[in-house]
Design a protein around this nucleic acid. Structure first.
Lengths: 354, 354
DNA sequence: CCACCGATTGACAGCGCTGTCATTCAGTGA
DNA sequence: TCACTGAATGACAGCGCTGTCAATCGGTGG
């Protein structure tokens, strides 16, 4: 364990000078007075309304500039103007998956002048409900949620909000409003079929906290169905109740091989981080991949594709999910017809580890 | 390249029913009428004011519940109540570093009932300025920014805002208001000294887009100073103008070794992702680590510590930075005395790759 | 019995902006 | 010449809430 040191280098007291500045922010009416027009004209000019003369716009801009005027969106949104905030609830930020989604989402939102307001649920339905309530109380323009298993109240809140609501990541359950994602069940099934087609017959699974991550659970179910189709069953399984990580995957494989020596010829991991951990374990123990043991993951991370042998995995289109989520929200806000269910699909990567 | 497929499974038009619901959200006064008290009493009861009878609170809660009342923070904040939003500007989400920071930040903010409002600058000062203006216009309670090189206007906006502003990640330049981070220069210097102490004399560097990531730049400068102290200089250098990734590190090392065959005995990478790429390159090419070539990185990611041989690197305390940033903001908001500069330090990890 | 007190509750104004109507005014065709 | 038109601007009210001060009221000590 590594402990950080925190050191206070310099201190000061609660600066009254800055507080003062805070008190007197110029308002629309001050800009209006300076520009010699009415408040509403300033409002329109600054928002780029088409019914203000170029001349007036210039005057207003000069006045606003010279006063250091900064629009107050709080007042604007309250007065009936549009909000440009979008609530975003994610279960975690501990691996790159949700940041990827968030990146795609932020990118598209930003282009349209919107901002994500973030909440992390930690896979906790109670906290999720709490976050929904909180974010909704800011009257956002929409909500994006990578839900864990939502409470009835959560669903009710979202349905009653009347806002565009996008449930992201998986499309295996019918959405309240809209959904963007992929079928994790299908991804697991697809991988099972692929591996069986490659000749593997003694398959095992190493997973992370599956009780909370129901998408990993869905993949496992799909994988099992695939085995069943071929008259097979999992010959070993290690599920550790911790968040996924490379270290956990390494530990998990060690544990699996200790319990099931020899007979296993392939291990399906709950995701790429875990799988890379498995690869590292093999490297450290001199187990040849895929000769002695084959390995497959899920996500298609850069990491796995940069291994000495490219990881066999399923690419999920994460930033695409974020982008599409932003897109359907923006479409809805524009009054356009929107898609209820968007399947961004997945792509099997036949790498060199299985 | 892998292309996603997007498929519209179901469509519908811009639901007028939901719009309706949206129109009639119950307000304070409706709750007040139902509970038989005044608006302000409802307001106080719902906010947990101490000067409302337990009895009244119960009445109000029942009324609010039965109407499905949802507080409007927009109105509250406009009327002078506190905002619980904190603007957060980060340069990127493409590796785990900033998500780690964000995680620590969100966690602490959430405990205090605050939400981060996010903006990604993409290391672009113009966009950063734009984001500052936008986020400020929502009158947040504070702002956290992992700045790239800020424009004068950006600095002016922040200074004039009168808000608690925390510049995070590095403390190498004096902050506008508060800073939380570490000295990247010192980290580079520290690593150079460590490696020289271990006997390495022919050192090279492989880095990513250093023109934009000025923290990586600071580490390199520190590293160079360390070499200079010992009468040494970099014997090779590859800097690729792309965002860092495992794949890029792998490519970068290949390029370096092609240009400088043999003589180099250690490569310092701009971060762990890059360094792991370097390790993978060596594995693939049969170069022994650290015998033929030693490798060092920066960040102390789980990934590097799970390699067959633990990566030699410097652990940055990322989630700690987020936590401390939240902390100083909350302290300031509580009117407490705050620390101007918080150094969370770093920890050299003497791994097995150098 | 009365001025006084602390604990509750309420009336009121206004936060800063925008939607919804007027209003103004130069130009237009009959 | 005159009603009429469209473009530009403005007056007004109010979004939903909270800070500030005032009012109420049962209890208290002198």
């Amino acid at each position: 364990m590594i402990f950080p040191l925190s050191r206070a280098v310099e201190t000061r007291s609660g600066d009254p000078l800055q507080m003062q500045k805070n008190l007197r922010k110029p308002t629309l009416s001050e800009v209006a007075a300076l520009a010699g027009v009415s408040e509403i004209t300033v409002s329109r000019a600054l928002r780029g309304s088409s019914m203000v003369t170029a001349d007036t716009i210039r005057k207003v801009q000069v006045a606003a500039e010279s006063l250091g005027y900064l629009r107050n969106r709080l007042a604007g949104a309250l007065a009936g103007g549009p909000s440009n905030q979008v609530g975003v609830i994610l279960p975690s930020l501990s691996n790159i998956v949700f940041p990827d989604v968030l990146k795609g989402l932020e990118d598209r939102l930003e282009h349209a002048g919107f901002h994500p307001v973030l909440g992390i649920s930690n896979y906790d339905p109670e906290k999720e409900e709490h976050l929904i309530r909180n974010l909704l109380s800011w009257r956002p323009a929409g909500l994006v949620i990578a839900a864990t298993s939502m409470t009835a109240t959560s669903r009710g809140l979202l349905a009653a909000s009347g806002l565009p609501v996008v449930e992201i990541m998986d499309i295996d359950t019918p959405p309240i409003d809209m959904a963007v994602g992929m079928s994790h069940r299908a991804a697991g099934l697809d991988m099972a079929r692929h591996l069986i087609g490659r000749g593997y017959r003694h398959l095992a699974y190493v997973g992370h906290d599956i009780g909370r991550d129901n998408r990993a659970m869905a993949r496992l179910q799909g994988f099992r169905s695939g085995l069943q189709e071929a008259g097979l069953a999992l010959e070993g399984q290690v599920v550790l109740t911790e968040p996924s990580s490379v270290a956990l995957g390494r530990r998990g494989l060690a544990q699996l091989l200790q319990a099931n020596p020899k007979q296993v010829d392939l291990v399906y991991f709950s995701n790429d981080d875990m799988a890379v951990g498995g690869v590292f374990h093999c490297m450290a123990e001199g187990i040849s991949i895929p000769g002695q043991l084959a390995i497959a993951g899920f996500n298609g991370l850069d990491l796995g594709q940069s291994l000495p042998r490219r990881l066999t995995t399923t690419a999920s289109h994460r930033s695409r999910i974020g982008e599409m989520a932003a897109r359907v929200i923006l479409e809805r806000l524009n009054g356009q017809e929107t898609v209820h269910l968007t399947d961004v699909g997945f792509t099997l990567i036949a790498g060199e580890t299985a």
